[in-house]
Design a protein around this nucleic acid. Sequence first.
DNA 1: GGGGGCCGATAAGGAGGGCTTATGGCGGAC
DNA 2: GTCCGCCATAAGCCCTCCTTATCGGCCCCC
Lengths: 299, 299
Amino acid sequence: MDLREFRVFLAIAERGSLSGAARRLRVSQPAVSQTVAALEQQVGVELLERSSTGVRLTEAGVVLAGEARAVLARYEQALSAVGRFALSADTRLRVGVPLELPPGLLPSAFAALAGSHPRTRTEVRHLTSAAQLDALRDGDLELGLLRSHPMDSDFDAMLVVEEPLGVLLSASDQRSDSAGVRLEKLAGLDWLAFARADSPPWFDEVNAVLRSHGVDPGPAVPPGQFLIAEVKFAAVSSGQAFAFAPRDWSQPLPAGVLWTPLVGSPLIRRTWATWPADSRRRDLAALIAHLDPLDPPAA
Amino acid sequence: MDLREFRVFLAIAERGSLSGAARRLRVSQPAVSQTVAALEQQVGVELLERSSTGVRLTEAGVVLAGEARAVLARYEQALSAVGRFALSADTRLRVGVPLELPPGLLPSAFAALAGSHPRTRTEVRHLTSAAQLDALRDGDLELGLLRSHPMDSDFDAMLVVEEPLGVLLSASDQRSDSAGVRLEKLAGLDWLAFARADSPPWFDEVNAVLRSHGVDPGPAVPPGQFLIAEVKFAAVSSGQAFAFAPRDWSQPLPAGVLWTPLVGSPLIRRTWATWPADSRRRDLAALIAHLDPLDPPAA
DNA sequence: GGGGGCCGATAAGGAGGGCTTATGGCGGAC
DNA sequence: GTCCGCCATAAGCCCTCCTTATCGGCCCCC
């Protein structure tokens, strides 16, 4: 008697497999299996032809998929119909973001949000992970993008991005080969770091990896102070230092600085969307859905 | 995220009160209160103006009520769209009924069922309560109308009718006054009974009530043997016996026989719709819904 | 004007649906 | 032949939603 079954069934129909639908819906495969079985029993018809390679919709399944889409669309319409009565105090959506987010991530999510919730105005605030957590707790932020899982039951979190980090090195550096550079080869260079207080768990992870590969972290950086790109580039091109960076760097590298992958990808920078667990805002939920890497808006 | 909230909200809208909706939905009043509160939080708008006399829809509530009706209608349409693929083996619905059901109950429910499930063919079988239970257990019946609650977790049951019984007495009988007849005045007459085995709990209840009022039950009747109305009438008009009967007797009484209410309504004959708890048949569910005295099809 | 009755809100406890992990059978790919 | 990915099933747990119990507010009626 509910729309959950329709959503699951549509995920199956679009992915062509129960396992795929389970991944997309972020639930386990048996949950999907049980749900669609219950749906089939309710309507009294087989909806799927199972095989060991996946599933195909039966004739009845094709019909129901169309119907289910219509029902869900009508449901969304119903909710948005009363949305215009909603208090306007809620239409500001404040999002905290760290430096160096994959280009395109926020613009596409915001664009999708503008379509479904045209009255929501998004505000972006560049903040460190620690500052975002504080702001979320104080109600000064509706959504954060953190460099570590909040580890706090007051918050829900979803992994949004995983970026294997490479390093920025001087173009004249000889440490790398065609496969990239080995982390231990970086011993002797300074790491262009950030302050531990800005994101302790992530800082500690990087430090632990560096130490285990015999690399000493460079000089400490005061909290809240970031090295702007030009400063990093200057230090790197001098051959004295290196910096970590994802492959998809948002700006062009100057001559004299090269990005090189790390052999074995020992460092993966993760970004978690984080929001108060008790939030019921629908525009927030929609934005989160659009950030979901397993539920691409393109689908 | 589901239709349950819509159903609850519509029940509120139609009844104009949370308590009324709760009765109609057969849940407690706090359940309704919580559900609609959750719905309001989701849409971010007050849907109801509460008062101590009931509730009224707000402007947003009126809009949502219309939308919710549309969504539910679309949902029903989706389920019935695949219904035509359902196996045809399921289209026979066998219903067991006792003697002396309120006139109109089954015809109106069957008519409503024919509208929503035109492919379902209903079959009525006159059976005693005990025989119906056996048939339900054997899969020979989809629905029973019993004179007692099945008291068995294999079955679900819903109270369908409550009939305060009066008595059929000879027109020349002097025992009654304007308020009716007192049960203890019937001592000395024979009760035109039915066999205990046909419906033990109900038989025992009647017997206990009779005995506590000093009335001796009359001669036993063999199981499965019912006295046809004409025989009852003959025995009653002779002045030797009485029979219990509801006010809404299905056939006209002959001259010489009068129906008289019992002072204090010491006997209330209840009829329970009873079906296998594991049944998922949608046509059965629809028929049960149409039998629901708290959810009149007229609404 | 005070008490009873009905309204809806809230708190606290319990049952069940839906999730999880663990495991098994099956078929295709290498 | 072995391995891997598919889906189904089993058993256990958690969270949602229900329950009962209780409260404050308002109306009505005496």
